[in-house]
Design a protein around this nucleic acid. Structure first.
Lengths: 137, 137
DNA sequence: CGGGATCCTATTAGATACTG
DNA sequence: CAGTATCTAATAGGATCCCG
């Protein structure tokens, strides 16, 4: 709790403003939630699910490169966390639809921002990275 | 910002619903950028760097649980991508400061949203997860 | 103080094959 | 169609030692 203030003192009086970064007590569940949502596929699936319900196969098509295994796994976790909803229709052939739950819809806005940012700055980042590699890391 | 809408328009007739999710062409670098930024520590480091420059040791203290290795690695990558800036002062004892670069500052706003969301819905997510576990997954 | 190099383990992710 | 199961390769991550 005093960690931040002490850091401020160390960095010098001029450095740090009124808004301390993150209270140490919150770090833990921030990390947990970030881990859950920040994995390789979750955000992508949430992004893809925004326009409306999708079936398993559709998801697989719209998230290129994802394996069946990871799709199943991620869907199950997102479902358990209440971010998406799974609806199975008892018909033949079987049909299962995944929908963004309210919780996931809230997250979606942020995901959109993040994806927008990624799209906007992708070139810049790549340029930076290549320059760094050229400059001799 | 408009990237997403433009993307939707580009996808056009080929897609299913009214508002197509993400054009397949963009999926790739979105994934790349998301991977870079969505790893275990990057977002946290960016969040912690927002108030002002921090030294290596300060970072290590403010991001609990991070190892020297991961801190070094993540800092280097963020630096190469141009999200943060490393400044070394040639003095004894040596002092090195890490600062959010403009690019990283832009990302920071999104990170803040994400952290805010995580803080707001952490309890809900945990409840959902436990209920799912109890219900027999 | 600010790391780099190395070793080793745990977790993750992909491919493949199979099922209701 | 919508998954599960299993096996394996790759990677992430932690611990430790060491150096400028």
């Amino acid at each position: 709790m005093e960690t931040v203030e002490r850091a401020a003192a160390t960095a010098g009086a001029a450095a740090i403003g009124p808004c301390a970064a993150i209270p140490a007590e919150h770090m833990d569940f921030i990390r947990q939630t970030l881990d859950r949502v920040g994995d390789k596929w979750s955000l992508l699936i949430i992004a893809v699910l925004e326009p409306g319900p999708l079936r398993y196969t559709d998801l697989q098509r719209q998230v290129p490169g994802i394996s069946q295994r990871m799709l199943s796994l991620t869907l199950r976790q997102l479902g358990q966390d209440g971010l998406i909803t799974r609806t199975a229709y008892a018909e033949v052939p079987p049909r299962v639809e995944y929908t963004l739950a309210p919780l996931g819809r809230g997250l979606h806005e942020i995901v959109t921002s993040l994806i927008g940012w990624a799209a906007d700055h992708h070139d810049e980042i790549r340029a930076n990275r290549e320059r760094a590699a050229t400059t001799g890391s």
